[in-house]
Design a protein around this nucleic acid. Structure first.
Lengths: 337, 337
DNA sequence: CCTGGCACTCTGTGTTCCCGAGTGCCAAGT
DNA sequence: ACTTGGCACTCGGGAACACAGAGTGCCAGG
């Protein structure tokens, strides 16, 4: 049904429309691309493509515009990810290398991605549930108050102030700290609940009330914080892309952590590039935008996802290249720190 | 020069323009406000106000619009801050009360403020330099690696991983921790540098290289982090306000920490409400926007600032009331935690 | 000093008109 | 069977134009 030339025409339409932002007609196509056929032939192909639902004309006697389905075909079969230039790679490396802690890595990553793609960048913090405990620290603040600090292998630090039901002596704190650390060190966060459940038996009865409070806070922190943090940057790029409709809606969606999470997260294969185009999108306000996302992680474990959000008419090959590259570099940085 | 009635006319113009977003003419004024005079008289007053530069007509035969100077006069002499309703106060209290750590307090505050005012809210993290050290923790991670955790009285936690020049035994760590805590506990962050400088003398020579590294990191953390964090929320409200020009510029400014800092920060009297109107603003892209800001803190010490940014034609009395109220409540929450 | 009246000046809106880009279809050519 | 040039047709967008309405400034009278 769709022979090679028709696909070439579709590719040309997508490319031209992305770069000019104007409906593209048969004559312009024949001029700008070496298709070797006349405008009339192209018109026939375009009619076929329109029947298939890949392109669409805003009104009679206007050029054609790709539909979401058209972009989808383009992304899946007509384009290949465009690698970054050497200069861009080096820029990424040096820019990310200077970060000193997790907050800063994430912050720099999101800005970098926004600047590189000229879209809105979105980065999810490395998931707690997929990382492991590196250290638990209990710091006495007052007689019945301690601060609990959880450090994970990704450099993330969670802290909570805990009010205890009873006074606790310093040496009991030290003991508890030691027990917790031997039990939890290197433990995958997913295994923490069961590990914690088995702990009280190994403590003296007098410690149990206090320990129970602390343990429950540990669990709470891990579970509550499962709602992972997401940050974004580059909203100004939205204003630049002449958005037909709903800039307001898009901005609102961006401030809804939950929506963002679903955008990045819901995907089948975790490790590869995910592209969601226009109406494929679950959220109503985001018709007209596409998301390009990728997982990142240290080593082979995926820790979280990052990506960009832009108008449906974005340069997919370039954007996908940038997202993939940044995801890889962040993974390296995290693995190395 | 400006008698009472002229001021009343200016006030009426500002109020009407803010609520209708359309240039307001003499007839409308006479109808909607009980000024007790005819439109003709109002026209004379308006001519005087225009001579004074308080209002301006976009073109001949259009209504008048307040100038920045007009808003300034309105804010300074013609209006008073409008307190929140009881329901709103209670909403604030319950909304902020649920926060468990500093990050969440700030996060909730900025969202609350955005929702309350329907503008963009901006909140600066409580300043490190104005708070005091509550605890210093050193956590051994490996032979030549420790994690340094600084806890302040505002609940802020700063952590850094430190690579040491030498192996350090656990008991030396404990000792160092003890020395640091006795020296620094309750110490205002501004005094930390001198306190730290005096420390090495009190340590045994063998500890000094390691201690020096750790101390320098402490200083570095405090100094570097002096670039304080700022967050914002409610960008979607910008799109709603029909912005004449430069939505792009405004979004860009919002993502520049430095610009935001200056907007909130540069002010003479720290503790009161600050209003900066349109061109009074230092940043070019923010012509057309006003900032209402206030300091907040626990007790009498101001820790940082917060505020909102919106179109010049905002409802100043209401906005100022909301900002002031939120600032006070956040102060209370911080003091109580 | 206020007020009603009046002539004047604009902008925004609606209407009309026309150009041009782009199409679909058809008949002829390869 | 596919490609191509020709041709009539459609429709959106811009230019030209007119017009109503809102608002003003000014003046003379109360």
């Amino acid at each position: 049904m769709l022979d090679d030339r028709k696909l070439a025409v579709l590719r040309a339409i997508v490319e031209d429309y992305v770069s000019t932002n104007e409906p593209v007609g048969s004559k312009a196509l024949a001029d700008r691309h070496n298709l070797g056929v006349s405008p009339a032939t192209i018109r026939n192909d375009m009619a076929a493509l329109e029947d298939g639902g890949y392109i669409h004309q805003p009104h009679t006697s206007a050029g054609r515009v790709p539909t979401d389905k058209g972009y989808r075909l383009f992304v899946d079969r007509l384009s290949q990810v465009k690698p970054l230039s050497g200069a861009e790679r080096r820029a990424i490396e040096t820019f990310l290398a200077g970060a000193i802690d997790l907050d800063e890595i994430v912050m720099r990553t999101v800005r970098l991605l926004a600047q590189l793609t000229r879209h809105v960048a979105v980065v999810q913090y490395p998931s707690l549930t997929r990382s492991t405990v590196r250290h638990v620290e209990i710091v006495p603040l007052a007689d019945t108050r301690v601060m609990l600090v959880l450090i994970t292998n990704t450099g993330r630090v969670e802290q909570r102030v805990v009010d205890l039901p009873d006074v606790i002596a310093d040496d009991r704190v030290s003991h508890l700290r030691a027990v917790l650390n031997t039990a939890l060190d290197g433990c995958g966060l997913a295994q923490v609940p069961e590990t914690v459940a088995a702990l009280p038996e190994r403590l003296s009865p007098e410690d149990r009330p206090v320990a129970a409070t602390i343990l429950s806070v540990i669990l709470e922190t891990l579970v509550e914080r499962h709602e992972e943090k997401i940050v974004f940057a580059g909203a100004a790029n939205l204003a630049a892309a002449d958005f037909t409709i709903g800039l307001r809606d898009v901005l609102e969606a961006l401030e809804e952590q939950v929506v963002l999470m679903r955008l990045l997260g819901e995907t089948d294969d975790l490790s590869e590039l995910t592209v969601r185009i226009g109406s494929e999108n679950p959220y109503t306000g985001l018709r007209g935008t596409s998301i390009v996302a990728a997982g990142y992680g240290s080593g082979d474990k995926e820790l979280a996802r990052l990506g960009v959000l832009g108008p449906t008419r974005m340069d997919y090959p370039v954007t996908m290249g940038a997202v993939r590259a940044v995801a890889r570099y962040v993974g390296q940085i995290l693995a190395g720190s």
